[in-house]
Structures are given as structure tokens and as C-alpha cells.
Amino acid sequence: METEISEQLGDLALRQAKELVQLLEAGQHDEAQALLEQMRSERDINLFSEIGKLTRQLHEALISFQLDSKIGSFAAHDIPDARERLNYVIKMTEQAANRTMDGLERCMPQVTQLTAKAGELHRQMEKLMRKEMQPGEFRTLCNDLVAHFEGTEKQLSDVQHTLNDVMLAQDYQDLTGQVIRRVISLVQEVEGSLVELVKMFGSMTGMSEEAVEPTKTITVGVEGPVIDKTRQDAVHGQDDVDALLSSLGF
């Protein structure tokens, strides 16, 4: 585009120069003078358009400085704040997981013990029903039953208490959900600013197409859970893993 224009301008200048020589050779000095005036005014017009271009670039640069200050505030405040928030999420989820696991580890042996005791008493009761029990054994069974019910009441109330605690430990979902949502909106803002920035500088250097069409980048090396279910380079669940491994002869 620009080279076309400058070629046109070059042609014009050459034509005008030839015309000027012809006029001078023919001794038409007034006409030559007029042509010279015309050429100078044309140069002025070009100069003005150049100044116009520079002014526009300056204007864009000034806008970009405003954008820079927005990015500055991301870097100085918002990103460290987001980091702190995400650390809070890690802390909360870890606490919840540990609190849940504490509860489970308290409950499991109690449940195992109750199951074993219930099984034992059940077998004793069957023996009684089959009338195979001695009077002495029967007395022991009665005492055992009373002790078992007393114990069961206490243990089950413990288990209930623990289950309540496990339930309460799930409140992290609400709290961390809110925090994560805020961080997502920050990421969106940062993304918006970056796109604007790339578009602006892109319009000067011809990179704008890259800014408009983001490409999906695939992380090299370890990357943790794959969230995008459409990704072809990753498996989605144990069945996929098993199929892949069996295709390798596992």
C-alpha cells in the first residue's frame, strides 16, 4: 500500500521534473515558476500527512501508557492478592480434608468393633434359639447384651457427633468457591488488558492476527489434572488408561 503510494509520488515528481526542464528550455519562465510553486505545495501536503500519522501514533502510545498503569496495578496489587487468596484455598481444602479424615479414622474402628460385637451376640442368640445354651451361658449372654447396648448407645452417639463434624468440614466448598470465582474474574480482566495491549502493538507490527486468534497451548511435562474433557492428547478416566495400557500389551 505504502510502496504503491510512494511509487506514484515518484512517478509524479519525475513527470513534473521533465515538464519543468521542457518549460525552461522553451523559455516559458512564468509557467516554470508556477510549476515549481505547485510542486512545493504538494510537498507540504505530504509533510502534513506525515505529521498526522505521527500524531496518531503518539495518541495511541499515550493510551497504551494508561493501559500500562492498569497492568501496573495488576502486578503491584491484584496478582499478589490473588496469590494470597489461592493459598487460602489450599489451606482451607487441606484443613477440611484433614478434619474429614480425622473423623473417619475415629469412626472406622468404632464401627468395626460394633460390627464384630453384633456378629458375636447374633451367634450367641442363635445358639439360645436352638436351645443349646446352658443356664450359666445364658446369664453371661444377658450381661453381655446389656453391656453391649450401653456401649452401643455411647459409641453411636460418638459416631453421630463425628459425622456432624465431617459434615461441617464441608463448608470450605462455599468459602473457597467464592475466592476462586474472584480470582477467575481477575484473570479475565488481566486477559482483556493483555489482548488490548497485543492488539495495539500488533497493529503497528503486524501481529494483530495472533492476538485475535488465540491458539490452545499444550503444556510440556507435568501439568496436574486435565480439566478440558475435549483434549485428545489426554485420557479421561481410568477406563481410558486401561485401554491405552492394554493397547501397549499390558
Binding site: 507435568v222 496436574g224 486435565v226 492428547d233 489426554a234 488408561v241 491405552l244
Partner: peptide, 13 residues
């Protein structure tokens, strides 16, 4: 592991 890329599973194998 949470690592789920096919190339990783192949590498582990």
C-alpha cells in the same frame, strides 16, 4: 497420579 496425558502413560509404561 493426576497426570493424564497419553504420552505420559506411554512413558511410564
Amino acid at each position: 497420579t493426576a497426570e493424564a496425558k497419553r504420552e505420559q502413560i506411554v512413558e511410564a509404561a
